[in-house]
Design a binder for these strands. Structure first.
Length: 494
RNA sequence: GGCCCUAUCGUCUAACGGCUAGGACAACGCCCUUUCACGGCGUAAAUAAGGGUUCGAUUCCCUUUGGGGCUGCCA
């Protein structure tokens, strides 16, 4: 059986995004699992920016990463913005350190300068592929004499730095997958730096993970095959190897890696589209993880961050990839919207409304709250709101035919509107509540047919084919506006 | 191609080696209903295939098949 799991205590974990694009949903999930892991086991969560790719790294992306992580409700103990004892937390600020370690490896003959040109390499690669071998570096520069190396360096011959990959198998015990083994002889000598001042990912990661004393490296499954390469480096330095855990990937509906299909699935995009951070958090964590079922009938799926943290357990992380299902996200989002206190919901919805209808819309908070409350059960996303509640602020024009119930006739509709106007005119302002309204209108509706009365009423109020019911709308609109809208309807018909 | 990971309803998933394989989303149907939603009730829907091990496999092992990742002087 399995070896007993080591007790996890005060782990140090990290998320190490590279600022080469907007904060991606997949990165968000990795961040989330690391955050949960740190919180759950009383450890530290660290944010490190991996910007060794100078070409593609941009400060605006770094800002976005930080902003969206905060938006999702994540906080970190060390890293960019907050600092800490193991800085710098941005790789481009560690160049001296990488250079030092590169020198160390070269001095110890564990790494070497390679002067092969990309063209040569490509040709060799083709050759090997043609022979059916797995393409790898043949080690031409592995044993260059110090004189030759010095000469070439003096002449500014372009070079890279390669690690001498040991000819052996490397195994590790993945927290999620159990034992995983790779044959390193298949790799060849890996390039670990483009130059002394240009370290490459696999090298920089090891230096930093070690330097920051990380105990667990939890990352996407796409890094699984990088792990043995990094272990080689740990061993070259004689450092302790952290525990690794490789999360299953989030897949697009066609099962390809998420980023490939919808390249720009940024968290910011979901935010803009009206998803709540608590819903996105909830949804994403359920992609590849489910809590233990508590005695019997199903599990609770709508959870707060705190509840998730309480239930979280690494052992229950899934191995297989999970497809990102927007329908489920929409449902979870809707559920969180239903649960949210109205003041909070109003605050969060305001930007979406303001965006469409302008600032004045938020001036009357009490009105706004009633409007939002009346429609919270009908929306999936905050961004659905403007379209649905717009009529409260501004009744748009509609064809008079819309006022006519099913196969009723214009004449009846006119009669209905006149009747309603007279009934509602007699009702006092403070009687404009659901109960009173129903008390006077429903008997009439039962008599003449509900649709005959209620449909024209509702359309007159909303101007829409589909909307909330009249007894929800009228109390919000109030007497004056209600009657005004009924007059508009009546005038349309004449 | 090579290496690695992976496999329960369409999707996310549950099931100490032991029940009619459970739940959720979506779909469909019915109810509620002035419309559209909400809500309530219900229906259909899965252990990839083949071998073992076992009294008994969704569960353990092997093979095949499918899917995915990696195979950069990206991260």
């Amino acid at each position: 059986m399995m070896t007993p799991r080591k007790e996890i205590k005060n782990p140090r974990v990290r998320i190490a995004p590279s600022p080469t694009g907007y904060f991606h949903i997949g990165t968000a999930r990795t961040a989330l699992f690391n955050w949960l892991f740190a919180k759950k086991y009383n450890g530290k969560f660290i944010v490190r920016i991996e910007d060794t790719d100078r070409e593609r790294s941009k400060i605006e992306f770094e800002k976005d990463i930080i902003e969206q992580m905060k938006w999702l409700g994540l906080d970190w103990d060390e890293g960019v913005e907050v600092g800490g004892d193991f800085g710098p937390y941005r790789q481009t600020e560690c160049l001296d350190l990488y250079e030092k370690y590169l020198h160390q490896l070269i001095d110890e003959k564990k790494a070497y300068y390679c002067f092969c040109s990309p063209e040569e390499l490509e040709a060799k690669k083709q050759e090997m592929a043609a022979r059916g071998e797995s393409p790898r570096y043949d080690g031409s520069c592995r044993n260059l004499s110090p004189e030759v190396v010095e000469e070439k360096l003096k002449n500014n011959t372009p070079y890279v730095i390669r690690i001498k990959t040991p000819d052996k198998k490397v195994a590790f015990n993945d927290m999620i997958r159990g034992k995983v083994e790779f044959d390193c002889s298949l790799f060849g000598d890996l390039v670990i730096a483009k130059s002394l001042r240009e370290p490459l990912y696999n090298f920089a990661v090891v230096i930093d993970d070690h330097r920051m004393q990380l105990t667990h490296v939890i990352r996407g499954e796409d890094h699984l095959s990088n792990t043995p390469k990094q272990i080689i480096l740990y061993e070259a330095f004689g450092w302790d190897v952290p525990e690794f855990g490789h999360l299953p990937l989030i897949l697009a509906p066609d099962k390809s890696k998420m980023s490939k299909r919808f390249g720009d699935v940024s968290v910011a995009e979901y935010r803009k589209n009206g998803y709540l951070p608590e819903a996105l958090f909830n949804f994403i964590v359920f992609l590849g993880w489910h809590p233990e079922e508590k005695s019997g009938e199903g599990i609770k799926e709508i959870l707060t961050k705190e509840e998730i943290l309480d239930l979280f357990d690494v052992k229950r992380i899934q191995k297989g990839g999970a497809i990102f299902n927007v329908d489920k996200l929409n449902w979870i989002n809707a559920e969180h919207i239903k649960k949210m206190p109205i003041d909070e919901l109003t605050k969060r919805s305001s930007p979406y409304l303001e965006n469409v209808f302008g600032e004045k819309i938020i001036s009357n908070q009490e009105y706004l709250k009633k409007v939002i409350e009346s429609h919270r059960d009908r929306i999936k996303k905050l961004s659905d709101l403007p379209e649905m509640v717009g009529f409260f602020f501004n009744l748009s024009d509609y064809p008079k035919e819309l006022l006519i119930w099913k196969d009723s006739i214009l004449e009846n509709t006119k009669g209905t509107l006149e009747l309603l106007i007279s009934m509602l005119t007699n009702l006092k302002e403070d009687e404009y509540n659901k109960n009173q309204l129903e008390a006077i209108i429903m008997p009439e509706a039962e008599k003449r047919g509900r649709g005959e009365i209620l449909w024209p009423l509702r359309v007159a109020l909303s101007g829409l084919k589909n909307s909330a019911g009249p007894f929800e709308i009228i109390p919000i609109l109030g007497k004056e506006e209600t009657l005004r809208r009924l007059e508009i309807a009546k005038n349309k018909i004449q």
